[in-house]
Write a protein that binds this DNA or RNA. Sequence first.
RNA 1: GGUCGGGUGGCCGAGCGGCUAGGCUGAGCUCUGCAAAAGCUCCUACAGCGGUUCAAAUCCGCUCCCGACCUCCA
Length: 489
Amino acid sequence: MEPLFLYNTLSRQKEKFDPIQPPFVGMYVCGPTVYSDVHLGNCRTFISFDLIYRYLMHAGYKVRYVRNITDAGHLEGDRDEGEDKFAKKAKLEQVEPMEIVQKYSLGFHEVMGLFNTLAPSIEPTATGHISEQIEMTKKIIAQDFAYEVNGTIYFDVQKYCEKNNYGALSNRNLDDLLTNTRELSGQGDKKGRLDFALWIKAKPEHLMRWPSPWGWGFPGWHIECSAMSMKYLGERFDIHGGGMDLIATHHSNELAQSVACNHTEPVKYWMHTNMLTVNGARMSKTAGNGFLPHELFTGKHPLLERGYSPMVVKFFMMQTHYRSTLDFSNEALSASEKGFTRLMSAVKLMDNLKSSDTSSFSLEELKKKCYQAMNDDFNSPVLIAHLFDGVRLINSINDGTATISASDLQELKKLYQAFLYDVLGLKEEKSLGGSNELAADLMNLVLNIRKEIRSKKDFTTSDLIRDELKKINIVIKDTKDGAVWEHSV
RNA sequence: GGUCGGGUGGCCGAGCGGCUAGGCUGAGCUCUGCAAAAGCUCCUACAGCGGUUCAAAUCCGCUCCCGACCUCCA
């Protein structure tokens, strides 16, 4: 097995992947805050880590993949003041905060299912780990890295910086961080402007609250990930991931908390996915250029000319490297859709391929290239490029201009099974011919009758049948071996 | 404003010192009753200006654009 290299945000370079305790791999990814519909950018992050999860497993690792659900403690503004996002939404919809959590957790899982992502090994919730967060906060206080002001506990960044580099992840020095932070209102009782809350005192109107040594309150946003990753993956684990926007604040805070608590670097490899843009601009609610996954699938949004199926969207995402920005546009999506269809058609063609004594190409070479692509920081666009080289090969074999041996044919099928389905996590969406017995029988009948007509050179009727079928999305192709059909969605 | 990251052919998107991916689109050809599909061929790019080097899209400097974070947004 060739070594795997991945880009570590901390070192800002590609590093050889060397798990702490092979064959086990611990991976933590910051999950969604379930107070509204999943953001498409969030989907991209989870789809990227799904690819990573799948490839690590394919490579033989025993992966424990933990992705949390934030269902408490996330405040408007991500500062330590303001309203709880869940409480706000609950008030708006006139329901319990936990109804909000339930509703959007279900919605999130549904969308991730449509994208054919695997469920994480553990999906812990913040509210289910309050005591762990309190314990961790206590430890940090005991180490003198946090202080209490009126029932709220703040992390002391200045103290932390005496011996540690707070800006290590974001690659910034402390002075820049301090001088470049704008003067904010509502700095509250913090000693330092970079300090952040580990535990927040609940105001009387707060619905979601828990007892603690410091009175009734709720956990700060950053502590949950530190507490839960520590609980399920240990004080030191392999991969921690999330969107790039989390680096400067959330992950830097997490890192500081864990180091303050355990005196050890919690994460060996920090991995971050890039942002998603629409027609070149960042997708955001205020810019009005954001659409929900369902709107993307159905095409019901002013920016969308039509809908694109989940697999097309996923394939489209996979054609861009996870560390590059991904730009959504109708043109790009349509291009991916055509490519995806061509790819899947060729894969299906493999079942009908005739083998020869020898192969006119090197299957080993193709296979090697696929692994090389994935071993180079999970380069799915390059992997897909090689998969398309295979498409041309498959079609050429089908046309008789290339040959394949029986054993290579078996290997080729395995290769696509492995990379297309197992690693990229793509799947057949269109019900191509034969998926439904009744439809297959009926179409057989139609095609046989049409064959009769064609043998009598009645092309007018023959074309009529083809045109009419096309109207109900059944495409007839007259090949030299007879007609075949497929049903497009 | 500060810090960090980018600008690649008609579009999307890899590559990141020499061998100049891939997808989509367009043109032509082969096959075909016609389509469709498929195959083959063509259009060959690296924001601009300098510099380093035998050799630069790839390294360095400057300029111009764009994005991220610092401030609600994933």
